[in-house]
Design a protein around this nucleic acid. Structure first.
Lengths: 351, 351
DNA sequence: CTGAAAGCGCTAACAC
DNA sequence: GTGTTAGCGCTTTCAG
């Protein structure tokens, strides 16, 4: 049973008009006599007509689709959350989105990009690209691109995140609680995966902002107190990175009283190491996360630096659509702020 | 710069043949003289020709796209994981997938479905549909549908999950550890969202299997020891469901020594309530999760019932593609098993 | 073995 | 105001 097969011609016939008139009614284009409009609308309703986006796409070279590349491990709920918002926003604007997970594999991402191009998507949003070459490919093919959170190639639009506010609030908060010895657990930078001309990766920025804010209080963090590792460990590959890095930190003398983490996942695994060492958060040690995704469901619930997910997604779609509607205009690079969300993982420093 | 704009006609011209011949070469259809093939292939390479899937779709009424509806809250990493696998599998088979998150809202899901149909997707996979009407709509429109994990409408294919094995292992394990007093925390069933003729919702099945397995040991669970609530609380809406339900359970006399949860997220929030009560897992209380997604990163890491995510995704795509290639064949309903993954949240019962 | 021609469903000039 | 026409890029008979 396939009732939705009514074509524009069918509607036209039913209404006793031409296809062109039907189109005019549907897209409210040229002038149509009011009476005619009624008839056509009735015919549309009657036949259950729905425009064929494929045919429309061929004719107009506008597919009304967006390609979205996400880099979302099972536990990277941040990227997932942004992706959700993007889908909703796109939907609102009449766009449907192709999603592709690059699984942190440049080759996979490349294949997906090619698919997007083959399907003539109107724009591509990278919810963090893994390989600059892929962003450039999109750009080179004349498809507007928007990079979210992480800039890997100096083309197209960007919706960046500024960790400064959140980090400042975090350091202020911890300092006020009496903390003077800090450590940092962060994601490591694969600099091969961004264009060298771009300067700092976001991981480096987070670290720098951490250090700078402590410097305001004349606190200097020795290199040994800053540890880095991969954001994700594939499922079943044993403990996540933060576990190992926290163990390293716990073996340091003197032991820090506050540990700032570059993601909630790193912090979650850090909590495991802390518990294993027989220590308690926040009594023995304060700890903070970043992303505010997992933070809420951990024990103790994490104080965490939140990135404005809704804002990120909205802006990404907005920029993409603007670029589609005006291909000549340059794509903007915008930045959104972060803020600390307080929960239960931070407390007075144990002296 | 738009180099990828070479059309089939361009290639044909370059090669000094007709478009029809180019098509034959590309899709290895009819006979083509070897020499001609060479020339055409060279022209393809030279022009960087890529088939236009939109035009192809119009002509063949096969869009080589799949629609995927996911019901994935930010913390529902299970659905996200299945969605990933589906994308990969589809990609392998030449399909690109439109993703839509229904955000647990039937109206949103309906809108997305309509988009999928407008774009003439070749099949639709529901990574748990929210409204049977939407599944039926797809089916009625002649688009093969596959439901994953949860069956809400008695049409199309199904890749179901059988909790029996995992639950049996869980109960055996806990019983062997000396546990005799059990409680259960599960997702509640919104029966308005499934067709009444279908029998049990998966939530009900999990509960039943829990009860039945305990009955094997002559253990009877009073109703007060079985609590239900919504799987997810939207971000910022306070503690997740499991927190409240666990608080309720902790106030019961006698207190159970083992609590089985219907999802890792419920268990995660339950851990928060347990910690708040000053109790320790697994010393004072054993607890198990379901999904094996968050399980790994919690403190303590959860023993959890794992559903075979890769298998689920693979089968869903397989069934969808089979239906596309043979629209007459009935869509199968298959079931995959579960198993317990042991970690640190289960221990000897405290007497 | 290869080319010519028709047409998928829609839109955008251009007529009337 | 409305109809006619000519394709968008591709596939698929049908001739040859």
């Amino acid at each position: 049973m396939k009732p939705n097969k009514a074509t524009m011609a069918d509607v036209a016939e039913r209404a006793g008009v031409s296809a062109a008139t039907v189109a005019r009614v549907i897209y409210k284009n040229g002038y149509v006599k009011d009476e005619t409009r009624q008839v056509v609308e009735a015919a549309v309703k009657l036949t259950g007509y729905r425009p064929n986006m494929v045919a429309r796409g061929l004719r107009t070279s506008r597919s009304f689709t967006l390609g979205m590349v996400v880099s979302e491990s099972n536990l990277n709920t941040f990227a997932a959350a942004v992706a959700h918002v993007i889908q909703i926003e796109a939907l609102k604007s009449g766009y449907t989105v192709f999603t592709l997970n690059n699984h942190s594999d440049p080759a996979m991402e490349a294949r997906g990009m090619q698919r997007f191009l083959d399907h003539h998507v109107d724009a591509i949003i990278f919810c963090t690209a893994i390989d600059p070459a892929n962003v450039r490919l999109g750009h080179r093919s004349g498809v507007p691109t928007v990079q979210v959170e992480r800039l890997v190639a100096q083309v197209g639009g960007l919706v960046g995140v500024d960790p400064a506010d959140g980090m400042r609030q975090t350091i202020d908060h911890l300092f006020d609680l009496g903390h003077r010895k800090f450590a940092y657990i962060g994601g490591d930078v694969d600099s091969s995966r961004m264009e060298s001309s771009l300067g700092e990766a976001i991981e480096a920025t987070r670290e720098r902002v951490f250090i700078d804010n402590l410097a305001r209080y004349d606190i200097h963090v020795p290199p040994a107190y800053i540890r880095r590792g991969p954001y994700y460990q594939s499922h079943g590959a044993g403990r996540q990175t933060g576990y190992r890095l926290m163990k390293d930190i716990l073996s340091l003398t003197p032991r820090p009283t506050a540990v700032v983490c570059g993601s909630d996942l790193l912090a979650a695994a850090a909590l495991q190491a802390i518990a294993e060492a027989g220590l308690t958060v926040p009594t023995d040690l304060s700890i903070t996360g970043y992303d505010d995704t997992l933070a809420d469901i951990l024990t103790p619930a994490l104080s965490s630096i939140a990135q404005p997910i809704g804002e990120l997604g909205r802006l990404a779609v907005e920029i993409a659509l603007a670029a589609i509607n005006d291909p000549a205009a340059p794509l903007p690079k915008v930045t959104v702020p972060t803020r600390l969300v307080l929960r239960d993982s931070t407390g007075p420093a144990r002296l």
